[in-house]
Design a protein around this nucleic acid. Structure first.
Lengths: 243, 243
DNA sequence: TGTGATCGGGATGTATACATGATGATCCAA
DNA sequence: TTGGATCATCATGTATACATCCCGATCACA
């Protein structure tokens, strides 16, 4: 409405704002969201608020209540672990299908290029974590596409939309960078093994490797949660966890 | 608004109507849905129509277009096959987790009761397909719950909401009832084996069996589609397939 | 003829008033 | 005191008018 629109609608901005607050933990799980209150707070009318809430429900960040309202979805530790497990299962299926059905050479080449770029990062003096994070995300997106299954790609996207389930979750944990980098070499070896298995049409091996690969994230969560709560503070991906 | 409301809102009724039309194939994949047109046709205003469209997008029956509208999602044969495969993968994971984590005795007992009831159906002179369909659905719901994972239960529900991916899809195919019944005995044997594997904490076996169990549905689809289109006519679950 | 600007129609986006319905407090009566 | 009815309150549901924006058609110009 105002002159400073950046081509975004009120509803889109409301989605972004609310998503941020939920992921930050500012809106803890179980919090009921009232249309009128949000509308007043955001300075818009109820209509775009309703639209925003519906979209966040689509993203699985909100649950619909029986009466017709919305509450922030609660994520317990078990949910985080299970969602990561689910990602492993889905990516494993993508890898298996890629092996069984045969992957397009073009995509395999693309995968190889990404892996070579990651290799390059390990040679630098100062490890570029942001660069790794980006390339890692690219690799995992590519893995989904290798399955050549629109259904699977869709579901993997859905699942990894949750911050703690994304392939690059926990890479932003500043306090443990040094230890983290060591584990990334092992992760990269797994990347290569997965692509090798797909290339060789070894479906079972490809699936097993992709599953195990996701276990690294699970170990990370379990480590972070088994220690002082102070450790969790520096890990944005875990802010959404309910108390 | 009129006096004949059955406690349902206009939006809820619009969801039901539109869902029916999509599943029937009356609204083919790719059809764009316009708010104004639907509102006029359904005799309600745009507001509940918008709400209905948002909910159907949540159910993955509609896709949002870039411009802000909605189109009916297209389901090609490959999508149907992959979705059934996905169900197998998810149910397999549920079975594996149940085995690995240990299933509550109460749920295992419940499973056994359902299986005994199904056994009973095979003894009757006239096979009760509706009864089987119901018990089969119950069994699959229970299998999800055996995993004791809220995340997995949620995703299995989401996936099986599509008519052709439901565990009891294709049981309503009237033309092939006789042949169908023969295959159901094998399916029931798989049911028992899955529960046995879970009871014995045999995770890998439980997962493999559940996956194979879903393959029966896939074989059914592939059989139906490899023959005269006439065969498809009597199979409501496949009406949604795009041409 | 190709290219780009302009304009119009139709679609979604938004605000708002009012309707409806659920919920809980209050008060009366047994 | 307890049960239940009633009513106020506040939430969502709905209709509708208006705003905005996208897109395609048309036309002028190079």
């Amino acid at each position: 409405m105002t002159a400073l629109d950046r081509g975004e609608t009120h509803a889109q901005r409301a989605v972004i704002t609310l998503r941020q607050r939920i992921l930050n933990g500012d809106l803890p799980g179980g919090t009921r969201l009232f249309e009128v209150a949000l509308a007043e707070e955001l300075g818009i009318s109820r209509t775009p608020v309703r639209a925003a809430l519906a979209r966040l429900a689509e993203e699985a960040l909100l649950d619909r209540t029986s009466g017709g309202g919305f509450v922030v979805r609660s994520f317990a530790v078990a949910d985080v672990v299970d969602t990561i497990e689910l990602r492993g299962v889905l990516e494993g299926t993508a890898a298996r299908l890629a092996a069984e059905r045969g992957a397009p050479v073009g995509l395999l080449t693309e995968a190889d290029m990404i892996l070579c770029q990651i290799d390059g990062l390990f040679l630098a003096e100062q490890f570029d974590m942001d660069g790794y994070s980006q390339l890692n995300t690219q690799f995992h997106n590519l893995l989904a596409r290798l399955s050549q299954s629109a259904v699977l790609i869709r579901e993997i996207e859905r699942t990894t939309a949750l911050p703690f389930a994304s392939p690059s979750a926990f890479l932003d944990d500043q306090s443990r960078q040094a230890e983290l980098i060591k584990t990334l070499a092992a992760a990269q070896a797994q990347h290569r093994a997965i692509i090798e298995a797909i290339t060789n049409r070894e479906g079972f091996r490809a699936e097993s490797l992709a599953r195990e690969h996701a276990r690294a994230a699970r170990r990370n969560v379990e480590f972070l949660l088994s220690h002082e709560p102070a450790l969790r503070e520096g890990v944005p991906s875990l802010a959404i966890l309910s108390a």
